[in-house]
Design a protein around this nucleic acid. Structure first.
Lengths: 104, 104
DNA sequence: CAATCACATAAGTATATGCTTATGTGATTC
DNA sequence: GAATCACATAAGCATATACTTATGTGATTG
């Protein structure tokens, strides 16, 4: 789970879409497929990349494998972003609002 | 300047390094090269990608071209990250501290 | 226990990407 | 104004990547 793996994983729009869908709630690989035009092996490969990056984690449940967002991956991005906080104030009102929300 | 361009730009470790170096202060392409083993055209191409992603902006100064961090790109990542704030609390103490800092 | 299901892995292929060398371009300098 | 400097662009090439079809694997089902 390095920054390189994380950014490479998120560089693919399909993987960002999968991640986004997962963020709405844990789901197995088949459920993830509907609504996205993608073959079963392709989905499996994408999930493997997301997992390797630490953005997602899996749990076997019978013959299904349940996937969920792994907060560690997001935290890693937040830390990367944090390095450049000197440049945030110029345009960061939206984020600031989100953070206020977090404090509640 | 779309999310796709931004994540693709940051997926390359050399470009992240260039961006990181730029974040310490504006610099021209030649100055960016020292300390990084990279040819002149390669640097030019990387800067072009970073610029296309809105992570960096340039300004001609005589025969030099000065590059600097473009906060818009960072803001875009912050917004992307913000969508998943539901997953932050698990590990986000460090970011929270950074944000407190920002409010001052 | 044979069939099926949910998913992973293998192997091949087409495109994308990051580099190289060569050349172009606008600006300064002698 | 010819040479040089700082950088961009072009073209070619090697590797990476995202997909495909085919097959493997562990678990449930009839």
């Amino acid at each position: 789970m390095e920054q390189d793996d994380i950014f490479k994983a998120l560089a693919d729009p399909t993987r960002r879409r999968i991640f986004d869908k997962l963020s709405a709630g844990a789901m197995n690989a088949s459920a993830l497929r509907d609504g996205i035009a993608i073959s079963q092996p392709a989905m499996s490969q994408h999930l493997s990349v997301l997992r390797g990056a630490g953005l997602v984690r899996e749990e076997r449940q019978g013959r299904y494998v349940n996937y969920e967002v792994n907060p560690d991956g997001l935290a890693e991005i937040a830390l990367w972003l944090g390095k450049y906080r000197a440049y945030w104030p110029a345009r960061i009102d939206a984020l600031r609002a989100l953070l206020k929300e977090m404090d509640q």
